[in-house]
């Protein structure tokens, strides 16, 4: 693998940004399976954090802990702490609905609802009662589409089904849907793995743009992608967080031999 990639995006991040998400000693069990082992990490605000690692190492599992999507899996059990802005998201008093309004998620396979493009975006604002009236809702929809770089392509057919779009457009629709409720954090689980290189490039561009306003955590299998879009990178292996650091450092001189092996393509 070519290690002389130019990770362009990291330069403008101040080294000591505020921590947005802090996990300490997180363990996840699926039934008897110990899928995530004692993970502690600090994720900085308004930056892109990439999770890399071989398949099955627990990247998605950890990502789903951050918006408590693991709650929807009956057999999943979580111990440890995750704070967002210093507030424990696993305290019983916390409302998951509000948490997920703050922490949006984009999935591996584009999953637009079988509704019109407009309704797809309006879904979140409607649920959370964000728009006061129809005009405000329209503003939110158009604004989100614009920020997701999709508006020009779909402005004439907002009433068409979301599923009639191409895969790349669908994924940007899903991103627009997520940002329509103005979350603080956006979780992306391999958002480009079902897309061709051009559509992926668009998503990457979008991520770089969204970073100005959102904290982004992205799982990716593409080392180049991680290098291009992220400022910090975490390497997982067998449920363990092996190494975390500035993307530049991880890719140029990793401390751990396992990280070195993985990013040079020796396993995984």
């Amino acid at each position: 693998m070519d290690l002389s990639l130019s990770p362009i995006a990291h330069v403008d991040v101040p080294p000591d940004t505020r921590t947005k998400i802090r996990a300490s000693g997180v363990n996840v069990f699926y039934g008897d399976k110990h899928a995530l082992k004692d993970v502690s990490i600090a994720i900085p605000e308004k930056a892109v954090m990439a999770f890399i690692g071989p398949s099955g190492c627990g990247k998605s599992t950890f990502l789903r802990c951050i918006n408590r999507m693991n709650d929807t899996i009956d057999i999943a059990r979580i111990t440890g702490n995750i704070d967002i802005d210093g507030q424990d998201i696993y305290t019983p008093s916390l409302d998951v609905v509000q948490l997920r309004a703050r922490v949006g998620m984009v999935f591996q396979k584009p999953n637009p609802f079988p509704k019109s493009i407009f309704e797809n975006i309006a879904y979140g604002p409607r649920i959370h009662g964000i728009a006061k009236d129809k005009t405000e809702l329209e503003e939110i929809v158009v604004g989100s589409l614009k920020r997701a770089g999709l508006f020009e392509e779909v402005k004439d057919r907002l009433d068409d089904s979301g599923t009639s779009l191409s895969g790349g457009q669908q994924q940007r629709l899903c991103i627009a849907r997520a940002i329509a409720v103005s979350p603080e954090i956006i979780l992306m689980d391999e958002p480009c793995s079902a897309l061709d290189p051009i559509a992926s490039a668009k998503i990457e561009e979008l991520i770089t743009e969204l970073r100005q306003n959102f904290t982004i955590v992205i799982v990716t299998h593409s080392m180049q992608q991680a290098a291009r879009v992220s400022q910090r990178t975490a390497f997982f292996h067998l449920g363990i967080l092996v190494e975390e650091g500035a993307t530049d450092d991880i890719f140029t001189n990793p401390r751990e031999p396992r990280t070195q092996d993985y990013i040079t393509g020796r396993f995984g």
Binding site: Q98, A101, F107, K109, N111, F113, G124, I127
Partner: peptide, 18 residues
């Protein structure tokens, strides 16, 4: 109905009945 649609909706903060 694919699970991914439900996940998408839960991920938006919708409740089960919504």
């Amino acid at each position: 109905v694919p699970q991914s649609l439900r996940d998408g909706s839960y991920g938006m903060g919708a409740t089960k009945s919504e």
